[in-house]
Design a protein around this nucleic acid. Structure first.
Lengths: 209, 209, 209, 209
DNA sequence: GAATAAACGAGACGGTACGTCCCGTCTTAGT
DNA sequence: ACTAAGACGGGACGTACCGTCTCGTTTATTC
């Protein structure tokens, strides 16, 4: 998350409670104000913490918001509903639910926007948010293979590329639907989307289209 | 784009050249500074215009950036490559190319982020960017139907929903690939994505997968 | 006092009222807080002015305080009491009275202290305060010469050195009495001091001592 | 100078070396930074001491600087040059020399300025600096009386007032010449000043001037 | 020589002010 | 009526110190 000079033994140790308070206050401020009107001074006040304490731990607004938002996605889990399609529908719905939280949508898109000009930030987003949730795709595939719904992957390279493609498609579509189109991710949409995704993936050969 | 009080007949008319200069200056500033460090004073200076002139025409940074960025996407067109798959691949590549422009990615995502808290802004984004490009989906479908690749749509409601779904999937996946994953949208990825999309759409029944 | 780029004809002109309000607010803040606790933000607030307005006109706290304090000494004038001794006693008393004002003592000594490390500031103090009041010495001598109490000065160089010496002695003694010794400059002290000064100056030859 | 709770018999005693190191570091910092930019954290670092150690011994910056500067004036002594005038010229020159030290001028004036709003501080300045050096005036008068240059003082009250007046005049004039006028206290000035002072004091009656 | 108790270094803490930057508005004179 | 110029009131920035606190460690003195 953030670190200080390695293994300082002397001096007063940093308050562990402050970290949690700051991240919670950040999410609260995102709800109330949104990203662009969120100020670090306000976050510090909400957290009952001095501005210096905040700056001692995070380099700036972007890094802070990434950490605050990333925690939200840890709530995601792959439900076991008996079929791959049902499992996917479940996790897509969860994802959409999180994305409707004001603290998630306002913060996430803003840091993605900032990350277009800040390689370190983009890496932080990927590590904290994207890669951390790729576990869901891997878990889903493993479970489907155990059920016999999917064949084992012979080529590890192709398998990794497919995971990335799936993640781009799932995350991208849900984010676009929610934030750009501004339409609800309801059961019907989830069903339609999942059908297209799974059918598309099932047809390995580029076939007759 | 922006308007003035309806019947202003007297006085010096607004400079038409100023509009174009301001939008160009905005894109230039997006390239140099990114959204968050872009200031309206700087844009005015770059455009050789007083700050007052700028504020008389746009309400603020968000509105200005939407207009500046929206123009970029008008360059998109559906190529006629002989098959639906090839046409889609062409337009996806074009879209990805535009998204690699610094002025597009930095600006677009930022206004989407801002739009999560500003309904009027989201409407402006949707009108200026999203809906304006939906023509591509409609055009592609019409052409494919003319070629006999797709059957005519009997149900207009379902047809509209499918257009929306396709748009969410295409735009979402490309944006996610480019901005979040930070991986290139190369020929291989475009091919894989298009295959999944078209195969998925072709299999109407939720079938045996 | 302070200046901007020479002859700016365009743009909104600086508010003349703001200058006066700021200097008055500075003196008020000196009374309430003293030099070391005076903050420019507070002065701006008291003056009903934004901090930027203040910084646009003065480089910092020192320059501002010099200007604010210098105005106080413009109230000094040489009374015509009929004899040189009486005139001097009058002006010394006036000077002592001004030095008992909190805004004067707190501010004046502090800028003198700061000026020990800032040649430009020392020059400003000398120009705004010291040299401006040397008129009193010159005026006193001229009047005494007119009365026949003092002979005309044959040597201009020696005359200037004597003016400086007198100023150092008068100002130095009163300041020291007031601020360092912390004793009142009462009639008795003024009388004693003036007697020593005038008798000392009257005995041109280094005499019998 | 400073004290701790009266009867602390147990526990580690305070380091005597730390006191000296801190005062020396304070003077060093005054030279390098001047009073206003001197920070206690920096002094502690220079002294190789923790900030806590410093605060345990001095209440704040003002008290510390008074103590650091006061030591400088202990170097003053009344030379025996054979006549009162020569003795005075000697001590005035010494005083002026000390006042040219950056650590003296910057620090002394600043604490005098602060003392205008802090009675306890002014008392500390008077006790540590002023009264401690009044010995020079007393010593000079005693020596002059022994030589027969001055008559014995019949009235002790008047004598004390004269001592104060002399001190105000000497210290005041030298300080003003050095710090405000910014002119050197050279032999000529010392000679002129001493002549005026002694001649003035010699003429007891307020006479014909 | 072990226990005690205070001083010590280090550095985090809540807080205040700094001087700068930009906001969006206004007040000029000029086009 | 519009324009360029630039001052205006206001608010947040990120930094520097303040004086306090909480640690683990060191060092005399007292049992």
């Amino acid at each position: 998350m953030h670190s200080r000079s390695p293994a300082s033994r002397t001096g007063r140790p940093r308050s562990a409670a402050a970290d949690a308070a700051i991240l919670a206050a950040t999410r609260e401020a995102l709800v109330d104000l949104g990203w662009s009107k969120l100020t670090l001074g306000d976050v510090a006040t909400r957290a009952g913490v001095a501005k210096t304490t905040l700056y001692r731990r995070w380099a700036g607004k972007n890094e802070l918001v990434v950490d605050a938002v990333a925690e939200l996605f840890d709530a995601l889990e792959l439900p076991d509903r008996g079929s791959l399609a049902a499992d996917i529908e479940g996790v897509v719905s969860q994802f959409a639910t999180i994305l409707t939280l004001p603290e998630a949508k306002s913060g996430l898109m803003a840091v993605v926007a900032e990350a277009t000009r800040d390689e370190a930030l983009r890496e932080r987003v990927r590590a904290s948010v994207v890669d951390r949730q790729k576990r869901l795709v891997l878990q889903g595939r493993a479970r489907a293979q155990a059920r016999g719904e999917l064949p084992p992957e012979p080529d590890p390279g192709a398998a990794a590329r497919t995971v990335d493609l799936i993640f781009d498609m799932v995350a991208g579509a849900v984010v676009h639907r929610t934030l750009v189109s501004g339409e609800p991710v309801d059961e019907e949409w989830v069903h339609g989307f999942t059908r297209v995704l799974l059918n598309g993936l099932a047809q390995k050969p580029a076939g007759s289209v």
